[in-house]
């Protein structure tokens, strides 16, 4: 199981990388952590003709908080996010999500931006970033654009990234004080892609939900916001009934496609369980517990 041949480009500066990508256009594919791409290449399901390796772009290896935003550069590894004290303070939901991505040896190479660009519908990070209203910064030789993540991911393994563009950064609004968060997922085996998972962020005001964000992975062709659940949670105090109602609302209208690890009904069920667990934990955190 060996990859097909490709031409390899290894720029040492962002401008150089963007020039190469610009020149290659449709042909160019970015290699960051490679933890999803290289397996696909080994299976020969992906046979890119040109790989642009951005692992030398030290300038993109950052996770920094700045002006109410946590900015994560394209070279920042998932394990760096996991260890980042700054991230833990600014976007604890994201840190909780990243700790559930695969296993440490994968997170040592895998990048946050790479996960977003790969847009696996079962992946944790895109769902967490969706709940956090993150923005994707796409850079190209022509300039830069900021794309809300819900516009960036357009389908299973599909994004609106244009040829010549690089996901240079992901920008995450800092979660406010008094917010509660949780990422809950379920997979039959530890460390695998989840059957489904839920990212929840709650902003409480005097014990009631002022604003709720709920996003799900594994239930559709891309991560989805559960608007029904968010609506249902407004004003909630965290009673059993409210939790149940929100969890039910979260999966209403969802028809996940079946696969080996779960039929449609089972995926919905797991999504509902995860939403409920995540909301419950988020409430308790918002109240200063856990």
């Amino acid at each position: 199981m060996k990859p097909a041949p490709f031409a390899y480009h290894v720029p040492s500066a962002l401008t150089e990388a963007l020039a190469v990508l610009d020149e290659l256009g449709e042909e160019g594919r970015v290699l960051a952590g490679g933890q999803s791409l290289v397996p696909l290449m080994n299976f020969r399901l992906a046979q890119p003709t040109h790989l642009v390796d951005i692992n030398r772009l030290d300038e993109l290896d950052y996770i920094r908080r700045d002006d109410g935003v946590l900015a994560i550069g394209a070279r920042a590894r998932q394990s760096a996010l996991e260890r980042s004290q700054e991230a833990r303070g600014a976007a604890p939901l994201l840190v909780e999500a990243v700790a559930q991505v695969a296993h440490p040896p994968v997170r040592h190479r895998g990048t946050v931006c790479g996960s977003v660009a790969h847009a696996d519908p079962a992946a944790e990070l895109p769902a967490a970033l969706l709940a956090l209203d993150a923005e994707v910064v796409a850079s190209s030789r022509q300039g830069e654009r900021r794309i809300p993540i819900h516009e960036f991911i357009s389908g299973p393994f599909t994004t609106t990234l244009a040829p010549g563009e690089l996901v240079r950064e992901v920008r995450v609004p800092v979660s406010g004080a008094g917010s509660g968060y949780a990422f809950a997922e379920f997979s039959p085996r530890h460390g695998d892609f989840a059957v489904s998972g839920a990212a929840v962020l709650l902003q409480l005001e005097a014990g009631r939900v002022e604003r709720a964000s709920v996003a799900l992975c594994g239930v559709a062709g891309m991560p989805v916001r559960a608007a029904g659940a968010e609506q249902s949670l407004r004003g909630a105090r965290g009673s059993e009934e409210e939790l149940e109602a929100a969890a039910a609302a979260a999966v209403e209208g969802l028809t996940p496609s079946a696969d080996l690890h779960g039929g449609s009904a089972y995926r919905r069920r797991i999504a509902r369980v995860c939403v409920r667990r995540a909301i419950n934990l988020a409430f308790s955190r918002a109240r200063g517990g856990a």
Binding site: M1, Q35, V38, P39, H103, P104, P105, V106, H108, R109
Partner: peptide, 22 residues
Amino acid sequence: EHGVCGTCTVLMNGETIRSCIT
């Protein structure tokens, strides 16, 4: 050869990585 089993794991700069998908 797809990064799941971990049999190919080595240390790169002291950190474990999958050498079959690097």
